[in-house]
Each structure stands twice: as C-alpha cells, then as structure tokens.
Simulated scan of single mutants.
Amino acid sequence: MTHGLGGGGRGLSGGLGGGGGIWGMHLHHHSSEGRSDCCVDSICCIINIASILLCIRKMSRYLRIALLWIYVATAVITTGLLISINVLGTNKFQAAPTDMRKVQDQVNNAFCQSLTLNSSDPFEAYTFDREPVVDPSKIEQFNTSYFTSMTGDTNTYWGFYLLKGSKAVVVSSGDELISVFIIKGSSNLQAWIDNKGSCNGCYLASHVTSPTFTYTLDVSQSDDYYFMYYSTSNYVIVVNVNVYITRTLYDVSSATSHCSYRPSDKPCSLDISLSPHMNVVYHNGGNGLHDRIDMWSTCKSRVWMYMIVFALIPALMTAPVTFLFWKYCKDDRSQENLAVDSEDNLPYNKF
C-alpha cells in the first residue's frame, strides 16, 4: 500500500511502486553556453582517445599502451561501480497485507548469487524458473479504511499493487468539490502530480464524489493502482475511505523453492540462477501485525561473474590491441631527429 499527500502544487509526500518517500519539485537552469562547453569537452575527449587508438597522435609505444590500459581500467571500474550500486546493498520497500508481487529492484540474475528477504511481518517467498502465472481461482480478501480532511488545492492518494483479475471497490464520503482519479502505474501517478490532473491519458477515470460515492475497479493488467482524491474546496471536507479488495494470487505449484518467514526466524535466503526468466515472489500474510509492512532485500554478489566480466574479458580484449600497438604504431622520433639536425648545424661540425 502506498499513501501520499500534496497541496498547493508545491510538493508531495508518499512513495511510488510500494515505497514511501518524499517527492520534491526542483527547477534546474542550465545556460546554453554551459551545454556548449560540455559538448565541446566531450567531443575533444572522444577525438583525443580516437587519435591515440588510431596511432594518429605521435607518442612512444610505451605511453600509448599505458594510456590504453588506463582508459580500459577506468571504464571497467566505473561500469562495475554503477552495477554494484544498482544491485548490491540493501533495498528497502513497503508492502501491504496480502500483497503478492515479484521482487524487481536491486536484483540481477547474472550478478546475484542469492537474495535475502526480511520483513517486519510474516511472509512467504517463492522462486520461479519462468514468469509466474496468476491463478484466478485463488483469491484473498483485504479490507482497509482511511480518514482524512481536505481543503483548498490539495490531494491525497492510496495505492495498491493488484494482479490481473483482482477487484477493488472504493466506498467513500465526499463532495462535488472533491474528485477522485483512478491511476494505473507509478509513471502516470508522477505525471498526474506534475500536472495536477491536466495530463492526457495519465489516469483511467475520474469522478466527482458524493456523500455516498462508490467505484469498482476491475484489474485487467497487473500493476500499481492509485486512488487520487483532489480537492478544490475553500472549506474543510472530511473524507472517509473504505477499500474492499479481492486479490488474485500466483499459482505457486510450479515454484522451484519456498521459504516461510516469521519475525523471530532467520531471514529467507533464496538462490538465484543465471536464467534471465527466473523470478522471486513474496506473499504477505493477511493477519500481519501492521497495515504498512516494511521489507528489505539484500543481494549477495556472484564474485566469479564480476571477475569474468570486469577482469578477464577486458584483459582478453585489450591484449590483442596492445600487440597491434606494439607492432604497427611507431615511436615518435621527431625529437630525436630534431636533436640530430641541431647537432649537424653546430659550427664545429663544419670543419
């Protein structure tokens, strides 16, 4: 479950895709002169590297080879660090009771040997060798209530991740000065926030509320869904929201491994295969301790894969280029020739 608040077009609190956070709106101004300088520097850098690799720039073979290995090492280290930042470390996110979804952030089948899952509430974890399939015959009920007061140019929303075939019924109080928008996907949510609803195609439907407002959402595609309440009233309006969700679940009969977690147990550790089709799925219990569940995952690196990708392969690719440099790129002897010419022009050499 995701919850967010906003007002006055200045900012919004809440999270996208199952996590809480702070959303701020910042404007950055870049002068055209700054962009031109950046482009010039980039072009010059590319030309400089190309002139060295193509043996156009005059220099000794030792220096040319040294620069080649420095450039390769810099590129490899930078790429490795970027991948490590996106894969390794702890990924914190939030979930709701009865949530069932794939773990997608900070997990990579090639670079993760195993994934450790932990939570503040009980959950079940599964691994699949292929895309998990939704079983429409397996359903789970989840009901929750919210209370808020709205006035002026403000908005508040609640979001849920729902699998295909699920149904969500929203019953709330309201007023003709409060509208509700049904939004699919975190990118559309952000588009709505940036434009205050004045965005083409960023929401599925919009309705003016009433004291007995009801809306039914039939989910045709698995995704995050948000119920955004937006007020234009000059006075305070109290809003009570009741959400009744009938969730479909994945068919776990084809799962390749399974782990049950309780807060007093050790975290679930799941082996990750090299198959790009493998998925890790978690399912929170309906009798959890909290309405908003904190979860976190940690990827254990596959060390030998890092060694192959960022050490062995670059070395094997750079070694032949080094040989070509040594064989075909001649040393720059212009300074030596200049010194010889200078000696020939000395007075004592004329006698």
Rank of each mutant, 00 (worst) to 15 (best):
T2W: 03
G7N: 11
G9C: 05
L12C: 14
S13I: 14
G15I: 07
G15C: 07
G18W: 02
G19H: 12
I22C: 07
G24F: 05
G34W: 08
D37G: 07
D37H: 09
I43E: 05
C44H: 10
I46N: 14
C55N: 14
K58L: 10
L63K: 10
A66L: 08
W69V: 05
I70Q: 14
I70L: 15
Y71T: 03
T79F: 07
L81D: 09
L82T: 07
I83L: 15
N91R: 12
K92G: 03
F93C: 08
P97I: 01
P97K: 00
F111L: 14
C112A: 06
L115G: 03
L117E: 03
S119C: 10
S120A: 09
S120K: 06
D121S: 06
F123P: 00
F128N: 00
D129Q: 08
P132W: 04
E140G: 04
N143W: 01
S145H: 04
S145I: 05
S149R: 11
T151A: 14
D153K: 10
L163C: 11
L163K: 01
K164T: 15
G165R: 00
A168M: 04
A168I: 04
V171S: 11
V171H: 02
V171R: 05
G174P: 02
L177V: 08
S179M: 13
V180D: 00
V180Q: 13
F181R: 03
F181K: 09
S186E: 13
S187I: 09
A191Y: 02
D194P: 09
D194G: 07
K196Q: 06
S198I: 09
G201Q: 12
L204R: 07
L204C: 04
F213I: 08
Y215R: 06
T216V: 08
L217W: 02
S220V: 08
Q221I: 05
Q221P: 01
Y226H: 02
N234T: 08
Y235G: 07
N240R: 01
N242F: 03
I245L: 12
I245P: 09
R247H: 15
T248P: 04
L249G: 03
S253Q: 12
S257E: 12
C259G: 05
S260P: 00
Y261Q: 00
S264D: 14
D271Y: 04
S273E: 13
L274S: 15
S275H: 06
M278Y: 01
N284C: 14
N284L: 15
L289Q: 11
D294A: 15
M307V: 09
V309F: 15
F310H: 10
F310I: 04
A315N: 05
A315F: 00
T318N: 12
F323W: 15
L324E: 09
L324R: 06
D331A: 13
D331E: 08
R333P: 01
S334A: 13
N337G: 01
A339L: 15
V340N: 12
D341C: 11
D341A: 06
D341R: 14
S342F: 13
N345V: 06
N345Y: 11
Y348G: 02
